[in-house]
């Protein structure tokens, strides 16, 4: 038996162990679940240690002597102070750095991609458009505007504001339903993938 065959058999056993939860909680499922947690933690720690700590700190600083990358390592080390209750305030420097760096990085990109580009895409381009495209563009415009009205909390939703926000809720509900349906189908295709593995790949590997 080669490593690939052994691996496929093991993968099939663990797949069945996880599916056994559908009957009820049992030792096979808990074994597989705990192993998955340990293996995943090990995988990600190795991956990020080599891609971030070694490549972005250790090699550039100690081999290439790029001292501009030294503060990153020092800030990273400050995170470890969190392990002690008395010194965990030191880790606030690393957390503040990380959160603020993200915040500064996000402001221009969020305004650009999540606000301006979305508004631009919502403004209908009517010249030369087919009737179907015009109707679609108007539905988009009404939907986005009324949803934004629904999220406007600075005034009480009465009268016209209430009517518009109710149209907004209607769009939101259709959107949530569609997203839910889409998510369910995504999960179902994963399930089909696992069944294909169990009923097609495993018998092929075992020569059945």
């Amino acid at each position: 038996m080669d490593a690939s065959m052994a691996g496929t058999i093991l993968a099939a056993i663990f797949t069945l162990a996880i599916f056994s939860l559908l009957y009820r909680d049992n030792p096979f499922y808990r074994f597989a679940e705990h192993l998955l947690v340990g293996v995943s933690a090990g995988y990600y720690v190795v991956h990020y240690f080599s891609s971030a700590v070694l490549r972005k700190f250790a090699y550039p600083v100690f081999v290439s002597q790029d001292w501009w990358l030294l503060p990153g390592g020092l800030l990273g080390l400050l995170m470890l102070f969190r392990l002690s209750r008395h010194t965990q305030w030191v880790s606030r420097y690393a957390i503040a750095f990380y959160v603020a760096a993200w915040s500064g990085y996000l402001i221009p990109s969020v305004i650009q991609e999540r606000v301006l580009v979305q508004i631009q895409g919502t403004i209908p381009q009517l010249i030369g458009a087919t009737p179907g495209a015009v109707i679609g563009a108007l539905i988009l415009l009404v939907g986005v505007t009324t949803i934004l009205v629904y999220f406007y909390f600075s005034a009480e939703h009465r009268g016209a504001l209430n009517s518009l926000s109710r149209i907004g809720i209607t769009f939101l509900m259709i959107g949530f339903g569609a997203s839910f349906g889409y998510t369910v189908m995504g999960r179902v295709s994963l399930l089909i993938g696992r069944f294909q593995f169990l009923f097609q790949e495993v018998p092929e590997v075992l020569g059945l």
Partner: peptide, 11 residues
């Protein structure tokens, strides 16, 4: 780059 190192250490 520092952000990535801090993230790695957090992990």
């Amino acid at each position: 780059d520092w952000k990535q190192v801090v993230f790695g250490m957090t992990l």
